[in-house]
Amino acid sequence: MRRVIEVGAGILTAVLAAAVLARIHPLAGEVINPFVVLALLVGFIRGEIAGAWAGMAGGLVADALSLGLFGVAGIALTTAGFLAGFVSRKINVLSLGRLLGFFLALSAVSLGLWMGLAGLIYGRPGPWSGGLILVQPGANAVLAAALERALAGFRKARGR
């Protein structure tokens, strides 16, 4: 139950962040995708199952808030969330550089999946937004790593 609440709160936060980004600039959502960050963080911290559920929920909300087929982002983020939990337990991602690289790779996988699925379904390449979308994995990785470190510090402080 606690994890469900956590994921719900995370989705609400992601919706909030998406709204704030949209207010800042219409293309800001192309640079940072809060739902991807949510899926990566939940998967990394709570494991692959929680990551998959969070990715699916966040992705479906993202799909609901955008035009197009419902479920494309859901599939991409479900995979990314699952992989974040699964792979992080197989490799060493303790250092900040490795963590950044790990999130960068998963965010790129998520973006690739989303672009691939969108291209497959619509029969044309996904929206490139003038190449701006290629910045997204890096920005997502930086934000996810920063948040992970902040949450780790918070948990550590509470543990004392």
């Binding site: 998959a52 699916m56 087929l69 479920g71 859901g74 599939i75 479900t78 995979t79 379904i121």
Partner: peptide, 13 residues
């Protein structure tokens, strides 16, 4: 579980 989730969403699609 992952497969179920993905299949469910593919079904949705």
């Amino acid at each position: 579980i992952l497969a179920g989730l993905l299949l469910g969403q593919l079904g949705l699609l």
